[in-house]
Design a protein around this nucleic acid. Structure first.
Length: 255
DNA sequence: ATGGTGGGTTCCCCA
């Protein structure tokens, strides 16, 4: 089973690139973030014609997440499933086959100390509680998405420049480590020790041309899922060419 | 310290 997580930065703007990617990689499950459209604006027909079922949690202008799958998508749910109202469409979960998925578009946070930064940390705490409530530790579980956090300096093209900046602060990395401590491993890092592999490059600095990027999109896998995983790669082809997203897809092979 | 590009909305926000 080939699975993908990809922040497409508008599904409507990115539709040609998404269809091209689906045709080329033929993934079984795709977790999409930043759809930037309401449910009724989602391009249902071309996605179905490409051979995919889908479940979407859309939102106008910002956010929006979705799951595509060649097989049946079971038990879908939207939002963090707690007492707090989900004002932003950032979470969708479902089961495909024997694997439970959680698709996250983690709050960006703007900058360290900003009110949105505090919201980001509180939001990640809610994610941890959702995992404890709903995701059994012995199941095959895949947590994918745009986490907007680097694990360590190997995930940063210029660590000194980014020291304690957004995506790289000690507090954010600690929040991510708390998810890991619940029993989930960074699947990409399981296979690749060296730095210099990124999933996001800033449009504004033409970062992709210089490989000045960050690794902020991740698959976190339970032990049962990781055991069946044979590799994780970044699809750089999707980041080049005409009108790409600022994120590249992360592709994992599951048994 | 700042701005650069890109997507979507609306006379600007977010990334």
């Amino acid at each position: 089973m080939r699975i993908v997580t990809w922040n497409v930065n508008s599904i409507r703007a990115r539709l040609p690139r998404v269809l091209e990617f689906l045709e080329r990689q033929k993934p079984d499950v795709v977790l999409l973030q930043e759809l930037k459209c309401q449910d009724e604006q989602f391009p249902a027909e071309p996605i179905e014609e490409a051979g995919y079922n889908f479940q979407v949690f859309g939102q106008k202008t910002y956010n929006g997440v979705g799951i595509l799958a060649r097989h049946r998508i079971e038990d879908p749910f939207r939002g963090l499933q707690d007492e707090v109202e989900d004002a932003e469409a950032r979470v969708i979960g479902a089961t495909v086959g024997d694997t439970m998925f959680l698709n996250l578009y983690v709050v960006n946070g703007q900058e360290v100390g900003h009110p949105r930064f505090d919201y980001k940390l509180a939001w990640l705490d809610r994610v941890a509680r959702l995992l404890e409530r709903r995701y059994p530790k012995n199941e095959k579980v895949v947590l994918g998405g745009d986490w907007n956090i680097t694990f360590d300096d190997r995930d940063v093209y210029a660590p000194e420049k980014w020291r304690e900046k957004i995506h790289c602060s000690t507090a954010e990395r600690a929040a991510l480590a708390r998810i890991v401590d619940l029993g989930y491993a960074d699947a990409f890092r399981h296979f690749t020790a060296e730095g210099g592999h990124y999933t996001w490059w800033d449009f504004r600095t033409f970062g992709f041309k210089k490989n000045e990027g960050l690794r902020i999109d991740h698959f976190l896998m339970s032990e049962a899922a990781l055991r069946t995983c044979s590799g994780v790669t970044v699809d750089l082809e999707a980041r080049g060419g005409e009108r790409p997203s600022d994120h590249a897809p992360l592709v994992a092979e599951l048994g």
